[in-house]
Design a protein around this nucleic acid. Structure first.
Lengths: 343, 343
DNA sequence: TCTTGGAGTGTTATCGCTAACATGATCCTC
DNA sequence: GAGGATCATGTTAGCGATAACACTCCAAGA
C-alpha cells in the first residue's frame, strides 16, 4: 500500500523492466537469464546479473504464478496435533521440500473429518499449489481425499495401506512385529498390547504386526487393550495390567502410552523390567530417560519425508507412476525396559 | 499445464469473466460481489453468487496478489525443532491465523543464526507475505531480525525482552518466580535451578525469576546448573544434584530436563518428592504421568498466538502501535513432585 | 551467390484480477 | 422540474511475469 519514500520520491520494488532498462536489454532477456534459457550471450547474461544485483531485484512470484498457472508451493494438510510422530514428519518434510526449492504451505485441521479436510484441500487449490501432501492417518481422513479431483498431484502419508494412490508409510507391521518378537525372544510366553485409537491406520498396523508375531511363535493372543495415544490412557491401561500377575510383557503402541504404563506399574509396586517388560513405539527424544530407559521402535521420519517429496516431484513432471507406494522400515532401539520374565 | 478434458473439449478453471458472462454482468461486478463492495443491487448479487456456485468458481489468489501487491499469507520463521514449546506455539498460531482468513507459510531454519534467518525472511518477502512472525528465542536470531527493512509488518515471539518492536512473550520470570516460590513455601531452605541453554531468552528469564524469588525470601542462591532443553542434560545434572545431600528442591527449566532429573534421582535411590522436590516448566501433556506426576508451569500458548496475530493485524491496517509488547502470564500446575523437605 | 538455419534478442499478447474513472439511472432538494 | 448527489454498473488500464512469434545477424552448405 504505502510505498516507501526515499529521497523525496516514491519508490516501489524493482520489476523486471527496471532491470532490463539498467542492463540495456528487453525484459524478456532478463526473464531468459533468470530461467536459465540457453540462448543468451555470456556477456549479456553478466550484464543482466549485474543489474539484478545492483537493484536488489527479486522476481515476483505472484506474477509468475499467474502466467504459468503453477507455484513453487507444496500444500500440506495435517491434523492439528503436537503428537510426536506427525510433528516430526512435518518438520522433516519441510526441510526436504525447502532443499528442493519448494515452499510449504501448511493447513492444519482440528478434526480429521471429511469436511475439514476438503476445506483444507480447497484452500490449497485456491493458492494454486503445485501439489498436496496429506497426512491422513485415519479412515475418515482417507475418505475425504477421495474427493480430490484427479490431476492434482497428491501424496498421502500414513494413509490406508490399501489405497492405490501414491503413498508413503512407515512399516507399522514390521515395527510391531519386531517389538513383539523382541519380548518373546527374551523368554516371555506372550505379549500384551495396548493399542492406539482404533480408527488410526498406524494403530491398526501395529495391532496386526503384534498378532502376527504371536501367531508365528505359537503364543497365545491375549485380549487387546484399546487406548488412544495419550499417557493418560496408558496409565489407565497400566492400572489394569498391573493387577494381572500373568502379564509379564507389554507392547505399547507409542512411547507416551508406555510412559503411562510405567507409572501405573510403579504405583502398584511392579518393577520394570524385573516384573514386567515394556516396549514402546516412536523413540521420542526423552524415551531414553524414562524410568527405566525405554526399549522402543524408531521410525525413520527423514526417510519418509524424502520418499514423499520424491513421489510428489515425480508426479509434477512425469504424470502417473508405476510404483506409487513406498514403505519405510523402522528400527528397534534396545534399552533397559526389557528383561526375561520373573521365575 | 494439461487442462482437464471434459466432453471432448479442453476446459480450464473458470475465471471471473466466465462468471460474469453467465450472470450477465461485467467482471468488475463479480469482483465487487466477491469483495463485499456495498454498491451492488441485492438481485445482482444473488445472480452472481448463483453463477459462482454453478461454475464452482474460485478466485485466483495469484492474480489478486499481483494487482494488490499483498497476499493473505503470513510467513512464520521458526527453529526446526520439535521442542514442545515452539511446536505448540506454532500449532496455536496457525489455528488462530486460519480463523482470521490467513494462510500460514512456514519456513523452518536449522540453525538460528543470522544468515539462515535472513534467508528465511527473504523467502517470505519473495512470496509477498502480508506479514512475518518470527519465533526468535535466542540472541543471534534476534540480531538477524534487525536486518528486516522497516515497513515489513513483523511480530517477534519469545524474543529479546528489551526489543522495542512488536513482540509477544510468555512471562518467564513470573513463571519461574512462582515455581521457586512454590518450593520455598513447601518449607525448603533454598531451591536449585537447572537452566536451559544460556543463549535462549526463555532460559534467561527463568533464571532471573528464580533468583528474584530466592532474594525476596532471603534464601541463599546456590550455583546455577547450566544445561540445555534435553532430558539427557537433565539426567547429567540430576546425577550431580543427587550426590549432594543438601539439595532438597530443584526447579528445572523445562519438563524434559525434569524428567532426566527424576531418572537420575531414582537411580541413586533418592525419592521424589520425599527426599527431593522438583518443579518443571511447560506442562507437556505427559508430565502428569511422570513418576511422580510433575508439578510444573503451564504457559498459555493459545493466548500467545492470539496476541501475536492481533499485533500483526494491527500493523497491517494501522501502521505503528502504541503498546507493541504483550506478555502472557503462565500458571502453576501443582502435582505430586513437591513436598516438604525431609527432616 | 543464394539459400537455410540457428543463435541472440525484441515485440506483443496474455494470465485473472483490482483500481480508477466513466456512464446512466434514480432520487432528493429547492 | 432543473441540478446535484448517490447508486449501480460498465470500461479501460494496469500489476509483473512468461509464451509465442518475429526479427536480425552470421556461418555453413548448395
Amino acid at each position: 500500500m504505502d510505498d516507501p519514500v526515499v529521497g523525496g520520491r516514491v519508490t516501489r520494488d524493482p520489476a523486471m523492466t527496471d532491470v532490463a532498462r539498467l542492463a540495456g536489454v528487453s525484459h524478456q532477456t532478463v526473464s531468459r537469464v533468470l530461467n536459465g534459457h540457453p540462448n543468451v550471450r555470456e556477456q549479456t547474461r553478466l550484464r543482466v546479473r549485474a543489474a539484478i544485483a545492483e537493484l536488489g531485484y527479486r522476481p515476483n512470484k505472484a506474477a509468475r504464478a499467474l502466467v504459468t498457472g503453477r507455484t513453487q508451493l507444496i500444500g500440506v494438510v495435517a491434523a492439528n496435533s503436537t503428537l510426536f510422530g506427525p510433528a516430526s514428519l512435518l518438520a522433516a518434510f519441510e526441510s526436504a521440500a525447502g532443499e528442493a526449492g519448494f515452499a510449504v504451505s501448511l493447513k492444519r485441521v482440528k478434526v480429521l473429518d471429511r469436511s475439514s479436510i476438503a476445506e483444507a484441500v480447497e484452500h490449497h487449490r485456491d493458492q494454486r499449489v503445485a501439489g498436496i501432501v496429506a497426512i491422513a492417518p485415519t479412515a475418515s481422513a482417507n475418505e475425504a481425499l477421495a474427493d480430490i479431483p484427479a490431476g492434482v498431484p497428491l501424496v498421502t502419508v500414513d494413509g490406508d495401506p490399501r489405497r492405490a494412490t501414491p503413498m508413503v508409510t512407515v512399516d507399522q507391521q514390521a515395527g510391531a512385529f519386531d517389538a513383539t518378537h523382541h519380548l518373546l525372544a527374551a523368554g516371555h510366553r506372550t505379549v500384551w498390547h495396548v493399542s492406539g485409537p482404533p480408527d488410526w491406520f498406524d494403530a491398526q498396523g501395529r495391532v496386526t504386526g503384534w498378532q502376527k508375531a504371536l501367531e508365528e511363535a505359537g503364543a497365545e493372543i491375549p485380549p487387546l487393550v484399546a487406548a488412544d495415544w495419550s499417557a493418560a490412557a496408558g496409565y489407565r491401561a497400566g492400572q489394569m495390567l498391573a493387577r494381572m500377575p500373568e502379564v509379564t510383557a507389554v507392547f505399547a503402541a507409542n512411547d507416551h502410552l508406555a510412559l503411562g504404563i510405567l507409572r501405573a506399574m510403579s504405583e502398584r509396586g511392579k518393577h520394570v523390567p524385573a516384573d514386567v517388560s515394556i516396549v514402546g513405539f516412536d523413540d521420542v527424544p526423552e524415551a531414553e530417560y524414562f524410568i527405566p530407559p525405554l526399549t522402543t521402535i524408531r521410525p525413520d521420519f527423514k526417510a519418509v519425508a524424502r520418499e514423499t517429496l520424491s513421489l510428489l516431484l515425480a508426479q509434477l513432471d512425469g504424470g502417473p507412476l508405476d510404483t506409487p507406494q513406498r514403505t519405510v522400515g523402522p528400527q528397534l532401539i534396545a534399552r533397559a525396559s526389557v528383561a526375561p520374565p520373573p521365575q
